Computed example of a mutant assay.
Amino acid sequence: MSITPMCYETQFFEFTPQTCILRMYISFQDHLFDMLRIVESVILNKMEKLPDCGISQLEVRKSTTKYLTFVNKCFNQLFQKMETCLLKLVLNIPRNVLLPEDRVQELYPDSKEKFDTLHREAKSLEAQYKAEALATQTLLAELEEQRVVQAELAKILTWFDGMDKICREHGNIDLLESFTFMAQTSKKLQGTVQEIDLKHKKLKLDVTCKKAV
Score class of each variant (00 low, 15 high):
196 I>F: 12
196 I>V: 12
45 N>H: 03
38 I>A: 09
99 L>N: 02
187 K>N: 13
187 K>W: 09
185 T>K: 08
197 D>V: 06
12 F>V: 03
46 K>E: 12
160 F>E: 05
178 S>R: 09
199 K>E: 01
64 T>D: 03
52 D>F: 03
57 Q>K: 14
7 C>A: 15
35 M>C: 14
152 E>V: 04
186 S>K: 13
122 A>H: 13
70 F>C: 04
125 L>I: 02
120 R>I: 05
182 M>T: 11
70 F>I: 02
174 D>T: 00
200 H>C: 10
20 C>A: 14
121 E>K: 06
113 E>M: 05
91 L>V: 04
190 Q>G: 09
205 L>P: 11
124 S>Q: 06
144 E>D: 06
136 T>Y: 05
105 Q>S: 13
156 I>M: 08
1 M>G: 13
166 I>N: 05
41 S>R: 02
196 I>C: 12
45 N>W: 01
175 L>C: 04
185 T>A: 08
57 Q>T: 13
209 C>W: 11
10 T>R: 01
168 R>A: 03
47 M>C: 02
23 R>T: 06
83 E>L: 04
186 S>Q: 14
92 N>R: 04
88 K>T: 12
69 T>E: 10
30 D>W: 07
63 S>T: 08
175 L>Y: 01
111 S>C: 01
62 K>L: 06
88 K>W: 11
84 T>N: 15
79 F>M: 01
213 V>Q: 15
98 L>P: 04
5 P>K: 01
42 V>A: 10
141 A>S: 02
63 S>N: 08
213 V>S: 13
42 V>G: 09
139 L>Q: 01
13 F>C: 00
167 C>I: 01
126 E>I: 07
116 D>G: 03
66 K>F: 13
150 Q>N: 12
133 A>Y: 11
129 Y>H: 10
53 C>Q: 15
107 L>A: 06
135 A>S: 02
120 R>M: 07
24 M>Y: 07
168 R>P: 07
151 A>Q: 12
17 P>T: 00
180 T>V: 04
64 T>Y: 01
115 F>A: 10
90 V>D: 05
155 K>Y: 07
204 K>Q: 14
20 C>Q: 14
181 F>D: 10
84 T>H: 14
25 Y>D: 07
116 D>K: 09
45 N>M: 03
123 K>L: 05
106 E>D: 05
3 I>Y: 10
102 D>H: 09
184 Q>G: 08
205 L>R: 15
174 D>E: 01
140 L>T: 03
151 A>K: 10
200 H>W: 12
149 V>Y: 10
58 L>S: 11
189 L>D: 04
180 T>N: 09
105 Q>L: 15
149 V>C: 11
119 H>K: 09
153 L>K: 12
138 T>Y: 11
119 H>S: 08
68 L>M: 07
175 L>G: 05
66 K>C: 13
104 V>F: 14
106 E>R: 12
78 L>Q: 14
39 V>Y: 08
189 L>H: 04
64 T>C: 06
104 V>C: 12
84 T>L: 15
35 M>H: 15
8 Y>M: 11
213 V>L: 14
71 V>E: 15
139 L>T: 03
48 E>I: 02
76 N>W: 05
146 Q>V: 04
28 F>M: 10
16 T>F: 06
206 D>Y: 15
74 C>S: 09
18 Q>F: 03
122 A>Y: 14
91 L>A: 02
14 E>R: 00
202 K>W: 13
73 K>Y: 01
